[in-house]
């Protein structure tokens, strides 16, 4: 099988995700964009795994999912906390850690 269509799709998804992260200010949207990028990678992993007939890529995809889930848990918690105190979900407002 040819992996090309899968890789094209993965690239498109990754680019959409990256653009979202860079351009959107809403923290939740930025997060969803990050998830999109991760899923694009997952797609590539799985595609290559299928191509090589090897299970390693799928394992990697699972790892990515687990990490992504953990990251979302922590990240959302932080976003919710910031929203509660500052009434804003914009990532540009949370720039207090710089000196």
């Amino acid at each position: 099988m040819s992996p090309t269509p899968y890789l094209v799709l993965a690239s498109i998804l990754f680019t959409i995700g990256g653009t979202g992260v860079l351009l959107r200010r809403n923290a939740l949207v930025a997060f969803m964009s990050v998830e999109l990028m991760l899923n694009a990678c997952n797609l590539a992993f799985v595609a290559f795994a299928r191509m090589h007939g090897d299970i390693d890529g799928q394992v990697a995809a699972f790892f990515v999912m687990v990490v992504a889930a953990a990251e979302v848990v922590v990240g959302l918690a932080i976003i919710v906390t910031i929203f509660r105190t500052r009434r804003s979900a914009s990532v540009d407002d949370a720039s207090l850690l710089k000196l």
Partner: peptide
């Protein structure tokens, strides 16, 4: 050097990209 640390997540993301 500190001026580079703007505190804007998106600019960090851009530099990572």
């Amino acid at each position: 050097l500190r001026r580079w640390q703007t505190g804007f997540v998106r600019s960090y993301a851009l530099s990572m990209l």
